[in-house]
Amino acid sequence: MVVEINHFIIYLREIKKTSKNTEVSYQRDLLQMASFLGQQGIMEVGKVTKTSLNSYILYLEKEGRATTTISRTLASMKAFFHYECAQGNIGKDPAELIKAPKVEKKEPTILTVDEVNCLLSQPDGESPKELRDRAMLELLYATGIRVSELINLRKADVNLTVGYITCRDEHKERMIPFGKVAKLALSAYMERGREYLLKEQDCEWLFTNCNGKAMSRQGFWKIVKFYGDKAGIKADITPHSLRHSFAAHLLRNGADIHVVQAMLGHSDMATTQMYMNYAQKEAVRRAYTGVHPRG
């Protein structure tokens, strides 16, 4: 089954043009599935049944895996077996009728403006690392891009003169503006920090780790965690918290929801709408405290 999985990953890369992160995620999920099925004596794709896949889902639930993880795994399985069916390798798709567990939607962690300001002020030194960290945090909050988009930015994707970045995902390209503060942080990093991190190596990536290599998602998560703790922020923040906060703060201050949707790269307006709900709650709270005698 591993051979078929590898062929599927090549198909994703060369035909579907999926991102590296998507490839890695699908491959990891499918190899874990294949390992479980192999222990049950199921070694060939054609011998996989709906029952055996349901057994694997049940196993993941018993292992205490999060519903989001199980849903993602099921999505990988469905894509793989749909591909195998389309290729004529199997006669029937065993994953077609399997339903994902219901995922409880959690409220996104949205920082206050004061919390964001406190977080972004933490890397205040002039070392190459602090210049890089400040630029990454400022740019993330200024644009609301995803962490994967941030760490995959190339130097050529930044236009400092006009003040915008070009982001590319699997399906489209979008240009996102950024403001003066992010521009100053980026300029300082590119002028006084980046070349020291590169250590005379050639690298197309805008942000690198301290060895001059591409920054990883885990590496940036640690950066956010470090400065969040340093700022004394009690909320359980992640890099995505700055994306949530970017959207919520823009909408609260009157930005058009369609503009925010375009900047975030959401294909579905409903995804952006959740930030509007937050903005409306904040507007009610501010109106109340502004006029109530004991507000």
Score class of each variant (00 low, 15 high):
150 L>E: 06
277 N>S: 13
272 T>S: 09
57 I>C: 04
146 R>H: 05
186 L>E: 10
105 K>R: 15
222 K>L: 14
45 V>S: 11
276 M>S: 13
137 L>Q: 02
65 R>C: 01
167 C>D: 04
3 V>Y: 13
156 A>S: 15
219 G>H: 09
168 R>C: 03
122 Q>N: 08
170 E>M: 10
122 Q>W: 02
129 K>E: 13
196 Y>E: 14
87 Q>R: 15
48 V>G: 07
206 L>S: 03
67 T>F: 13
173 E>D: 01
100 A>G: 12
251 L>V: 11
207 F>C: 07
292 H>S: 11
190 M>A: 00
208 T>M: 04
294 R>Q: 11
137 L>I: 07
36 F>V: 10
207 F>V: 05
92 K>S: 08
211 N>C: 07
125 G>L: 04
287 A>V: 12
106 K>N: 13
150 L>M: 10
196 Y>W: 06
243 R>Y: 01
94 P>L: 02
18 T>C: 12
191 E>H: 10
243 R>D: 03
283 A>F: 11
247 A>L: 12
146 R>D: 07
82 H>P: 02
187 S>R: 14
229 D>K: 15
279 A>G: 08
170 E>C: 08
140 L>T: 15
11 Y>P: 04
18 T>N: 09
76 S>E: 09
223 I>Q: 02
55 S>H: 05
218 Q>L: 05
46 G>M: 00
268 D>R: 00
143 T>G: 11
54 N>H: 05
250 L>H: 01
113 V>N: 04
168 R>E: 15
121 S>M: 11
58 L>Q: 08
212 G>H: 11
218 Q>M: 12
74 L>Y: 08
67 T>D: 07
54 N>E: 13
244 H>P: 11
131 L>N: 03
195 E>W: 10
160 L>A: 06
89 N>D: 01
58 L>D: 09
68 T>G: 04
211 N>G: 03
89 N>M: 05
185 A>M: 09
48 V>L: 12
160 L>H: 05
277 N>P: 00
148 S>N: 09
156 A>R: 09
200 E>G: 03
139 L>E: 14
156 A>V: 14
269 M>K: 06
99 K>E: 15
231 A>N: 02
72 R>L: 04
215 M>H: 05
277 N>H: 15
150 L>D: 01
28 R>T: 13
49 T>F: 05
191 E>N: 14
267 S>C: 04
150 L>Y: 04
246 F>M: 07
187 S>V: 10
32 Q>L: 15
271 T>D: 08
4 E>C: 00
282 E>T: 10
148 S>Y: 03
216 S>M: 02
181 V>T: 15
122 Q>T: 05
32 Q>M: 12
10 I>G: 00
210 C>Y: 12
6 N>I: 00
194 R>M: 05
118 C>E: 11
166 T>Q: 14
186 L>T: 10
57 I>G: 00
166 T>L: 04
289 T>N: 14
10 I>A: 14
285 R>Y: 13
133 D>K: 02
254 G>M: 08
143 T>N: 09
162 V>A: 08
197 L>Q: 09
4 E>S: 06
32 Q>I: 06
278 Y>C: 07
199 K>M: 13
271 T>R: 14
241 S>N: 03
218 Q>W: 06
196 Y>L: 14
168 R>Q: 14
265 G>S: 06
27 Q>F: 09
103 V>S: 03
126 E>K: 09
169 D>S: 10
79 A>R: 10
27 Q>H: 12
